[in-house]
Write a protein that binds this DNA or RNA. Structure first.
Lengths: 209, 209
DNA sequence: TGTACATCAGTGAACGCGCGTTCACTGATGTAC
DNA sequence: TGTACATCAGTGAACGCGCGTTCACTGATGTAC
């Protein structure tokens, strides 16, 4: 290292190395099967050094979950500004697909640990998704065509949309597009799927009750 | 034991005890964090006895996945007979909710291991879900209002529906209804959600493309 | 700028533990006559 | 039905291994004067 770094800066680098090592290892396995020694080894540090940065593996896991949702929130915020539901949906679908493909490891962490045996991570992830859905319900209420809907129906619609976005994301992690063409196709399919929901929502009162 | 059993029958009982022990342990943790010794202990048998029934834990896991999908298929078959999409959807939603609540442990296994680090289970589960979606697409094509749809659009619709059913099931595992009233509410919400999709599908050609 | 001391990120040895798998075994059940 | 032998589900001791955590340590960085 030619550039001089303070002790604090070096410490941050090691901390980051541990987080990245964990993310790398989480490509192959779930959090529950991760070991502190593996993470330390992958980060190029002794197991003991780990304790200078985190109390235990769970604490490191919570930091990763926090980072994952940070990226998800950025993504959503970008699409919020639009006015017509269709535009919001089209832009959201595209951003969703792009974000998942760019941040594979983070999104896989969320998908996997949502039902994991590691209670702390599971609860953190579920709380974030619930927040996401309730924010979406609030947003939806602002659209003129939806403003007479009951809170309950808005909730069902928001859950349906969040559920669909999750399953789109999961589908992308499962079989990622192999090139720009397939990526465009994935975006188009995601848009179609979410638009079908919006079309359904629009016709809902007349035929659904 | 007062009733006489053959050696073969006793062996089957032990095998079942091992499977049930694993299911019980899977309430608390994911498959990756399960150990052969834990399962044997829970089944009241020495670790060595395990090998008389399965080569390793993964093989036992595959048997459980098979059982889970068996129950899922039974459930679907029951709703297939209906003619109008709305009836199919209403009955499917109700059966889905009931089945998940009755077979919590099996459905949780599917939800959890769909993204687990245990490759063998993950692949088995994904193959079954793909099969499920493609069968649904075939079924959907039989409805008069959908018979002019393109294969691609039918695929999108089938994925949307399967995705929604999965996320409904996952929601039930997450926060199960605490009584008959809440159960009815859960069924109603599931029906609403799937009906919204059907309404959307019906309006799709006119406004979607 | 130079010195003397304090801090603290990372080390390496050691511990007890549960793991998967092997092996030779036991003794009840099943079979051949 | 009775006997002699074969089968085989389940046992229990033993193995080597990676694990999380503890501890006293080292030596470079930071601070006070």
């Amino acid at each position: 290292v030619t550039i001089e770094l303070t002790r604090t800066e070096r410490k941050q680098l090691t901390r980051r190395a541990l987080l990245d090592a964990a993310l790398r290892l989480l490509e192959d396995g779930s959090f529950a099967s991760l070991s502190l020694r593996q993470v330390a080894r992958e980060a190029g540090v002794t197991p003991t050094a780990f304790y200078r940065h985190f109390d235990d593996l769970e604490q490191l896991g919570l930091v990763l979950v926090g980072e994952s949702f940070g990226r998800l929130r950025e993504m959503i915020r970008a699409a919020r500004a639009e006015l017509a539901p269709e535009h919001v949906v089209r832009r959201s679908a595209e951003t969703l697909v792009r974000s998942v493909l760019e941040q594979r490891v983070h999104f896989r962490l969320l998908a996997r640990e949502r039902f994991s045996g590691v209670a702390v991570l599971r609860h953190a992830i579920r709380a974030e998704f619930r927040l996401f859905a309730s924010e979406l319900a609030t947003d939806l209420a602002r659209f003129p065509e939806l403003d007479h809907w009951s809170t309950e129906d808005l909730g069902v619609l928001a859950n349906l949309m969040v559920g669909s976005m999750i399953s789109i994301a999961e589908g992308l992690l499962e079989t990622p597009p192999s090139g720009p063409e397939e990526e465009r196709a994935a975006i188009a399919a995601a848009q179609k799927q979410l638009l079908m929901i919006i079309v359904g929502a629009r016709g809902w009162r007349s035929s659904g009750g």
